[in-house]
Write a protein that binds this DNA or RNA. Structure first.
Lengths: 233, 233
DNA sequence: CATGTTATTATGTGCATACATAATAGGTAT
DNA sequence: ATACCTATTATGTATGCACATAATAACATG
């Protein structure tokens, strides 16, 4: 049997997890306060606090000053997704990455883009369309709009040799963003690019980023059919 | 101008974020050590440590003992998704939630389930098929397999009156799990259940949970077309 | 020169203490 | 009762100190 180290926040974290999991502290019930737990475990309150903070971050308990700590009634499972740059994502699958630029031009951005970014209708933006390949098979289509005033110098970049995904991460910092996942039927054009049948279900990631209230870029990644995004809970 | 409170870990966290974002500390560069930063900000090392830990958790910096702290080369954006129980998800959209059981029976589980769970082929499991509605429109189809030996008492539950999603969260704790997101074309049966055209792109969540190496449940949630899962970065 | 040993260094963690802050409970005046 | 003020309480955070631990660098030894 592995003894619990009640002197380390990890040990205490595990023990509290156990009490919650085994319904020793059922959902909704009050958890003893930090001082009491510290006394029970024979450690400093700081240590209990650290353990409890992790549980709160994971959504398993709710904490409020004075009101105390309670086991979450509906423990929303909190999933952490790491979204790497596309080249690495391909290489992590032991596949060879390749990138092909389809078009790069300054255009009046369509309303669906400007409205979401909070820009004037018809603002000139840099539009980039490209495909990332894994072992010569299409992996995803990247459809991106960049706000040139937020990213000085983009106009001069040749996105045939450098891919936009990576260049932006290196050169266009953002302070906040919005990301959405959905499923879409591939239209004829997309289907051709992804070498998939028309109408095929495609996993889509829409991402928008801002740098201090200034919109930077809006991108849609359409993954070739069969793509799965997964993590552990 | 808002002054930075260099005495609070939040203030320091913001200041470090700024230095990273504005390329004062470019990707790959070394960050001063905790002691030096503490001296610079005039605070305790503990406070700097707290701020840096947050940055490390967010994937913006990499920390290694002795080697020191470095700004991440490819800052993988880390997304946190909260997956609430389905009823709450519907109600958060200001819609009325309703639930309908389609079937509940003990069956020999198909190979695609048992193999992923690490169970004997043909193990008897409780299969539950149900639909969740939002304002009387199908919201998602829940296709679930439960391992009865891991969840004592499931056989006696009437899942026509209690929905499996909620009952399990309350009664079947898990210690680990696996979750995957993908897109699929609805087959004829699913399309009918979701009141969608056959072949419609459907957002699918596959989740498997274990309780200390014992498989608990495998579930597939197929969302009605149009569903978007989104968060902030 | 390769290899194993030993310092050195930066982060990781624990503790006691103090004070800050949010939220509730209790009491007082109107 | 209602509104307002005032304890009280549990969590949140900062500090100085100490020691643990991982990883590297420096050194010594064959």
């Amino acid at each position: 049997m592995s003894e619990i180290d009640t002197n380390s926040w990890r040990g205490i974290h595990l023990e509290l997890l156990r009490r919650i999991n085994e319904r020793e502290w059922p959902p909704g019930s009050a958890v003893p306060n930090e001082a009491d737990l510290a006394a029970e475990f024979g450690c400093a309150r700081t240590t209990v606090n650290r353990a409890m903070r992790e549980l709160a971050d994971a959504g398993l308990i709710n904490r409020r000053r004075k009101a105390g700590t309670h086991v979450a009634l509906h423990p929303t499972s909190r999933v952490v997704l790491d979204i790497p740059i596309i080249r690495l994502e391909v290489e992590q699958r032991d596949a060879q990455w390749r990138y092909g630029l389809l078009s790069q031009e300054i255009l009046a951005a369509p309303a669906r883009i400007t409205s979401r970014l909070g820009l004037e209708r018809g603002t000139p933006m840099l539009h980039i369309s490209s495909v990332h390949f894994a072992n010569s098979h299409p992996f995803l289509h990247e459809d991106r709009w960049i706000n040139p005033t937020a990213v000085p110098g983009v106009e001069t970049v040749d996105f045939a040799t450098v891919n936009a995904n990576e260049w932006l991460i290196q050169n266009a910092p953002y302070t906040s963003g919005d990301i959405a996942f959905s499923a879409m039927n591939a239209d004829k054009a997309l289907a051709e690019l992804l070498e998939a049948p028309e109408g095929a279900a495609v996993f889509v990631v829409d991402r928008i980023t801002w740098n201090k209230n200034e919109p930077v870029t809006a991108v849609r990644l359409s993954y070739a059919p069969g793509y799965r995004m997964h993590t552990r809970l």
